[in-house]
Write a protein that binds this DNA or RNA. Structure first.
Lengths: 186, 186
DNA sequence: ATTACATGTGTACGCTCGTACGCATGAGCA
DNA sequence: TGCTCATGCGTACGAGCGTACACATGTAAT
């Protein structure tokens, strides 16, 4: 006896299960942190039996790597597109401001995921690679409009502004973000 | 039988044990992360029996809070002193540069502890209070020499610079740090 | 010297975890 | 139709965890 019969679903044939599991993993990380992310928690979030985790992934590290890869790539893509579209330096500055103030700090965007990635990457080589690929990509995008030194510095500034806002009870307003970036770039 | 007799120390009467445990906790956090920090790991690091943890602390949260409080206060103290000693704005800029380039980024300084604190604080109210007290204190120190907007912005910049350096395989040099800060403040 | 109590120590309990693995099942192909 | 195997499912196992708690011991007050 395993307890009350668990609502016998007959959910065979679930083609995008792997994808759904990766999304569920991101949701769990955002809610409970990497430390609170377990096979069981992800399975519960995706409404899938525990045994399914072993089948689709090689282990927890595997899931984390796939989840964070998806997360960073979706950010990097937007970053790339906006900066590629910019034609002048002023447009590039505007693109950066918009990205940070409107996208990274928008309520729907789970800023905490980024910090979680950083910490996890400190001790997980695979996640470190994910982090670095991402940093490289955003710096490459910046270098198209700014000299390498400026690109690196503004990259760090963006990091600090978002992190600061993510953790403060009194987050910076979009106007303050704009002021800080423009002060640096104009 | 518990296994090989564990080197019968007679270590009774250990007056600063609590202090040593807090230091050991910081060492364990730096090495294994908050997620890998357990009573047993700290006890091992301090060479103390497991039972001692229960006696000296109310739980793991209690230890973490005390450890991070010690960590942030030791940084804040230096920050305060240096900025209080500065008499002119130029001296204040110099103090900030030195703090970041020489202290925060020095090899002995465990930068990763800061990031660990941030992540842990996101889900632990007590640690959130520790983080905010620290941020407030460093901003107060900056406000003695810079206007509030500048103080807040440079605070974020420092955050980004140190974080960036902590995670990159190609960390910024002290000269690059100096360049970034001076560009912003002069 | 006796006592009281703060401190130190060892161990046990119940829990959750990652992972392995045997069995079930149904989709796609011959 | 019948076969086959990728996929799905349930459960079990051993390990490590936080915590509680009974007992030991040394200090300091009387």
């Amino acid at each position: 006896m395993t307890g009350a019969a668990p609502a016998r679903r007959t959910r065979r044939h679930d083609p995008h299960r792997r994808d759904r599991l990766i999304d569920a993993a991101l949701a769990v990380i955002a809610e409970h942190g990497v430390a609170g992310t377990t096979h069981r928690e992800i399975a519960r979030a995706a409404d899938v039996p525990l045994g399914s985790m072993t089948y689709h992934f090689d282990g927890l590290d595997d899931i984390l790597a796939e989840a964070f890869t998806r997360h960073t790539e979706s950010i990097a893509r937007v970053f790339d597109e906006r900066l590629t579209a910019a034609r002048t330096r002023d447009e590039a500055v505007e693109a950066v401001v918009t990205l940070v103030a409107d996208d990274l700090l928008s309520p729907g965007h789970d800023l905490i995921l980024t910090v979680e990635l950083y910490v996890a990457a400190a001790r997980n080589p695979r996640l470190k690679a994910v982090t670095q690929a991402w940093m490289q990509r955003s710096r490459d995008a910046l270098v198209r409009h700014f000299d390498p030194t400026t690109a690196r510095e503004v990259d760090a500034l963006i990091e600090g502004l978002t992190l600061h806002s993510a953790l403060s009870t009194d987050p910076m307003t979009p106007a303050q973000i704009r002021h800080a970036i423009e002060r640096y770039l104009r």
